[in-house]
Structure formats: structure tokens, C-alpha cells
Design a protein around this nucleic acid. Structure first.
Length: 427
RNA sequence: GGAGGAUUAGCCUAAUUGGUAAGGCAGCAGUCUUGAAAACUGCCGGGUUCACGCCCAUGGGGGUUCGAGUCCCUCAUCCUCCGCCA
């Protein structure tokens, strides 16, 4: 959520940002917002005057009663009318405020000055390409679904029977390999990168979705449990960032760094027919997430750190990848700056998104009211929040299986995972 | 699921029969001091105002009342029991 005071002072900045994000049709919202804000402030002023009157006269009535100079019935009748006027004015104020909030919640975040202006994914900037790792794949390659089936480690058909398309089942060594990946990533982030491990709830309430910005904008992508008002998390970002919702963080504790495994649930509504095979697009997948709360001045440094921590996993697994700096037309609404990491799939012959590392500055903190008291200052300030996948296992598994396959159709387990799997080859 | 109790600012704690949130700690600024501590003074939830001030804020949302921390309804969370349960 953006700061209404800031919008009032610099409306042109917001309009320019909406243009860069290719959201020209949302530009009228800015003047609408400013208009509502003006109305609200006028109304508040009027209501405040009436309330001041009510408070003053109420005190007078109290004094009269104390001194025994009569019940002052006439005065009370007058105040009855004032109370009604206040109620009327308060209810229209409430309407105005919710209209303002609705617009504020729907406006995207600012963009960092380093974000390239661009119209589509084509204009994302490639920051880094990390290839090589000496794989000799000079034989007919199997893709991950073929390997999964022939080795008996992945079962998409039975997953479809039990739940539906896009709910993969891991069996035997496949399940063990998946668990090994998760454990390896969590161990690396906690032991080497200084994160505190969190095991969060997988169902959250609406306030939490609103806090991180999945609500109301992406409501149609979230699985909903109507009866209990709960939602299946699309990412651990939601419960983990909301851990501190409404809290005043101790400045000495910053930066706070959490890592969490969770299953992630996404409806992927509207994307049927695209990349449907195997793990390429699923409704449930596993992910290890990194979340940080920082002082405002430290957040961009923290973003680079998160990116580095995600990259460290890929380097240890020897998986080729590239890093993209997303352009203004492709970056998500909540982020001011975002890097995507894509892993290479030799069988699909393309890159697959496996991580997204974002700075949200105070956009989420303002929604969630997460503050800290800076040293040397009396007033609390909003923290900055960030997160990054470190990483999603589904796309990782694609690349891992395909790169480590042998001409005989077996899969060699990457060395760093062997302590976790207890075996070094599948098949 | 049922019964009772609780929720006040970053933390801790008050508030006659309903009369308009009092303190303490921590924090910030200053005085004093060679420096620090102590002591003292001011600030110390949010909005609005050049300012004085005014308004809002006692877990969330409603209601009664001229007036609600206080009374009523409802929801959430925590505690103590009872029941049920993997």
C-alpha cells in the first residue's frame, strides 16, 4: 500500500509509475483517489466540529448534574439531534474511507530507479548466465516426465486421480530425493546463510493475504476454504511475513531473516493448455522461501544477499541458470525491484523460472503495520520486507533429473544431496 | 461444543453508581558533568492545523446513552475447567 500523503504530494510520480507498468487504464484512479481524499478531509473537519460540541456539552451536563442544578432536559434534547448528525456524517465518512482503502489496496508499488522500463518479458535484462558444470549430454535425452515414469519416482497419473491434474505424486526414491532437496536447502540457509527456520501454517486468514498483497489483486489464484474463511497459501511468504503483522520490531533484532519450507497451492486459473506437462505448471509444489525484515536503508543490500543465497543452492547442485532483472512491464505489482532465477532444462530446451527475489520496501509493511523504532529517533518507521524463493523444487527437479541422466536412463544424485538421500544413483 | 475469567500505548499497570484514559519502565531531546551515572525539564498512539487547539484511539465489529474502558450483542485471541477427538 502506498502512502496517501505521498500520493497527495507527488501524484505525477504515481501516474508515471502506472505508465511504466503498462497500467494506463488505472491512471484515472489517481485523480479519483485525490478527489475522495479531499472529500474525506472536508467531512472529517465538519464532523470534528460537531464532536467537539458534543464533548463540551456532555461535560457541561455532567457538571450540572454534579452541582444538582437540574437534569437539563432541553440541552439533552439538543444533543440528541447533534448525535444523529454525527452518526449520519460518520457513516458517509466510513463509506469514503473504504472507497479510498479499496483504491489504495489496488494500486501497485513504486518502482526502483534501477528497474529497466520495458513492455514485456522480452525486455527483462539478463544479469548473469551461469552455465557449464561439464555435463556431457551427447545422447538422446529423456525429459523429466519420461525419466520420472521409467524410474518409478514420479506419478502424475495417480496424482490426477487422487486430486486432479497438477497434483504430482513422488514415490520411493523420488519422494526421498524431494525431501533431500528441501532439507539441503533449509540446512544451507540456516547453517551457512544465517536464517532462522520457520515451519508455518499452510492455511491463512484473509488478513494475512491482504498483508502481503495477494488480496484483493490475486484472489482468483488462491484456493479458498469458504466455510472457515481460510485460504491455502500460494507461497510461504504469506504466513512468514505475516508473523510480525501489527508488531513493533526491536531495532536491535533487525535484520530479521527467516527461511521456511511450505507446500504452495495455486489455482493457475486461466493458464490451462500452457506448459501443462509434468512439473512445468502444477497446482501444488514445494518451496523453501527466504523472508527478511530490514531497516529501509538496508533493503537493497538485502535483496542482493537473498539473490546470492538462492544462487548458492544452484551452484552447489551444479544446475545451470540465469538471473533476470525484471523490467517495469513484467515485474509484479507488489515489488519495487525483482530478480528472477531461471534454471536450464536441456530436454525442454528452455529456461524455467525457479525463483523470484523481490524487495517490497514499505508496501507490505504499511499494509501489515510492521514498524521499528530507529535509534536516535523517537518516531517508529515502517520496516522494509523482502523475500526470495530458495528455491521451488518442482522446476529444480526438472533440471536436476535431466542434467544428471545417463545414456542408460539412470539418474546420478548430485554429490551434495547424497548425505540426505542415502543413495547416489536412481535406476 | 459448553461454563467462567481476561485483552488499556513498545512493555507493565490504574480508573467511584457510566461523566470523557492516571501513572511507571523503556526510548528520544536537553540541563548539569572532564566523561558517564544519578537527578531535573520537555517529548514519548494516530489524524488535522503555520500555530494555539480540535478530533480519534482501552483486542475487532455493532448497539444503548447527551455521554461508554465501564452496560448489552457479536467475533477473535489467551487462561482455567468440562465434554469430544487423530
Amino acid at each position: 500500500m502506498l502512502d496517501i500523503t505521498n500520493i497527495r504530494q507527488n501524484p505525477d510520480d504515481i501516474i508515471a509509475m502506472l505508465g511504466n507498468r503498462l497500467l494506463e487504464n488505472e491512471i484515472p484512479k489517481v485523480s479519483e483517489l485525490l478527489d475522495l481524499d479531499r472529500q474525506r478531509r472536508e467531512l472529517v473537519q465538519q464532523a470534528d466540529e460537531m464532536k467537539a460540541l458534543r464533548n463540551r456539552v456532555s461535560r457541561e451536563i455532567a457538571d450540572m448534574k454534579k452541582s444538582g442544578s437540574g437534569p437539563a432536559n432541553e440541552l439533552i434534547q439538543q444533543m440528541k439531534a447533534v448525535a444523529e448528525d454525527i452518526a449520519t456524517s460518520d457513516s458517509s465518512l466510513k463509506n469514503l474511507e473504504s472507497a479510498i482503502e479499496e483504491i489504495l489496496l489496488s494500486l501497485p508499488n513504486r518502482l526502483h530507479h534501477s528497474v529497466p522500463v520495458g513492455k514485456s518479458a522480452e525486455e527483462n535484462v539478463i544479469c548473469k548466465e551461469q552455465g557449464g558444470f561439464d555435463y556431457s549430454l551427447d545422447f538422446p535425452l529423456k525429459n523429466h516426465t519420461e525419466l520420472g515414469k521409467s524410474l518409478g519416482i514420479l506419478d502424475f497419473e495417480r496424482g490426477a486421480k487422487v486430486s486432479g491434474a497438477g497434483f504430482p505424486v513422488y514415490t520411493g526414491k523420488g519422494a526421498r530425493l524431494e525431501r533431500a532437496l528441501i532439507n539441503f536447502m533449509l540446512d544451507t540457509h540456516t547453517s551457512c546463510h544465517g536464517y532462522t527456520e520457520i515451519f508455518p501454517p499452510f492455511l491463512v486468514n484473509r488478513e494475512s493475504l491482504r498483508g502481503t498483497g495477494q488480496w484483493p489483486k490475486f484472489a482468483d489464484q488462491v484456493y479458498t476454504i469458504e466455510e472457515d474463511g481460510l485460504f491455502a497459501i500460494p507461497t510461504a511468504e504469506v504466513p512468514v511475513t505475516n508473523l510480525h503483522r501489527g508488531e513493533m520490531l526491536d531495532a536491535a533484532d533487525l535484520p530479521v531473516a527467516y527461511t521456511a519450507y511450505s507446500a504452495c497451492f495455486r489455482r493457475e486459473a486461466g493458464s490451462y493448455g500452457k506448459d501443462t506437462r509434468g512439473f512445468l505448471r502444477v497446482h501444488q509444489f514445494n518451496k523453501v522461501e527466504m523472508v527478511r525484515f530490514t531497516r529501509p536503508e538496508a533493503s537493497y543490500e538485502a535483496l542482493e544477499a537473498i539473490l546470492g543465497h538462492a544462487e548458492a543452492i544452484l551452484q552447489a547442485l551444479r544446475i545451470p541458470y540465469r538471473v533476470l532483472l525484471l523490467c517495469s512491464g513484467d515485474i509484479s505489482a507488489n515489488a519495487t525491484k525483482c530478480y528472477d532465477i531461471e534454471v536450464w532444462s536441456p530436454a525442454e530446451d528452455k529456461y524455467l523460472e525457479a525463483s523470484s527475489c523481490s524487495n517490497f520496501e514499505d508496501y507490505q509493511a504499511r499494509r501489515m503495520n510492521i514498524r521499528y523504532r530507529p535509534e536516535g529517533k523517537a518516531k517508529p518507521e515502517f520496516v522494509h520486507t523482502l523475500n526470495g524463493s530458495g528455491l521451488a523444487t518442482s522446476r529444480l527437479m526438472v533440471s536436476l533429473l535431466e542434467h544428471n541422466q545417463t545414456p542408460e536412463g539412470r539418474v546420478i544424485v548430485p554429490e551434495v544431496l547424497r548425505p540426505y538421500t542415502g543413495f547416489d544413483i536412481i535406476g
